[in-house]
């Protein structure tokens, strides 16, 4: 019986690869938008304007305080009531981007704040504008602190992307969910799904560990 199901699983494998590809698209898009917006918000969050800092803080707290599945339901079911009708895939990418932005914002703000105040002063004293100071002096140094947790956050976003399966996006988890009806070998099916997630997460985890070690070495050199 098991070998029969195993055979069928092998036949259906391309379907899993399509799901994997969809996961890459959803997670990848969320990752890209989240990084862009996260950097912008993070830089603002590390700034001196208290109103902006507090507003962003509220946004981050709301995102971190509610389950992602609830956020997806809000984007998919509530936005239409306000006139914004989204298909499942755009809604999924939007929700994941909102999630990613909040977490990356905190990582970036932490990195920027970690740069010594003297660096800001030295750059300002040479007559550089605020934007030049950020671009040439502060952000390059902040990247050291930002990169390891940023890559770690990418792994988390890939795992969170599994939740978009609830609104019908046919990514990897959904493929497993749908398959298990026809091939009732839950252990086999979801071991395969898990393994495929591992395959795309593992390179990033290794990268994050490597970056963390490199950062520790750089600190001791200083």
């Amino acid at each position: 019986m098991i070998s029969f199901y195993f055979q069928r699983l092998v036949e259906i494998f391309p379907f899993f690869l399509k799901g994997l590809w969809m996961t890459v698209i959803v997670a990848g898009s969320g990752l890209v938008f989240g990084t862009i917006c996260g950097f912008l918000l993070g830089i603002l969050r590390a700034g001196k304007n208290k109103v902006i800092t507090r507003l962003i803080g509220v946004y981050v707290a709301v995102i971190r305080g509610t389950p992602f599945v609830v956020q997806i339901f809000i984007v998919f079911f509530i936005l239409p009531e306000w006139g914004i009708q989204l298909d499942a895939l755009p809604a999924a990418i939007l929700a994941l981007s909102i999630l990613g932005t909040a977490f990356i914002c905190e990582i970036v703000a932490g990195g920027v704040k970690a740069v010594a105040a003297g660096q800001w002063e030295a750059a300002a004293s040479s007559g550089l504008t605020r934007i030049q100071q950020l671009r040439l002096v502060i952000i390059p140094q902040a990247m050291q602190t930002i990169l390891p947790p940023l890559v770690g956050q990418y792994v988390l976003l890939i795992k969170d992307s599994s939740v978009v399966s609830v609104i019908g996006v046919v990514e990897l988890t959904r493929v497993g969910w749908v398959t298990v009806v026809r091939i009732p070998e839950g252990l086999m099916v979801f071991s395969l799904v898990g393994f495929l997630y591992f395959v795309i997460s593992y390179p990033l985890i290794r990268l994050s560990n490597y970056l963390e070690k490199r950062m520790a070495v750089q600190e001791t050199k200083l």
């Binding site: 792994v155 890939i158 795992k159 969170d160 992307s161 599994s162 939740v163 399966s165 988890t173 497993g176 969910w177 298990v180 009732p184 839950g186 252990l187 099916v189 979801f190 071991s191 799904v193 898990g194 997630y197 591992f198 997460s201 593992y202 985890i205």
Partner: peptide, 13 residues
């Protein structure tokens, strides 16, 4: 390295 939802489905199914 695997999502929680997948782990839940793993045991549920």
């Amino acid at each position: 390295t695997t999502p929680l939802l997948v782990q839940i489905y793993f045991f549920y199914f």
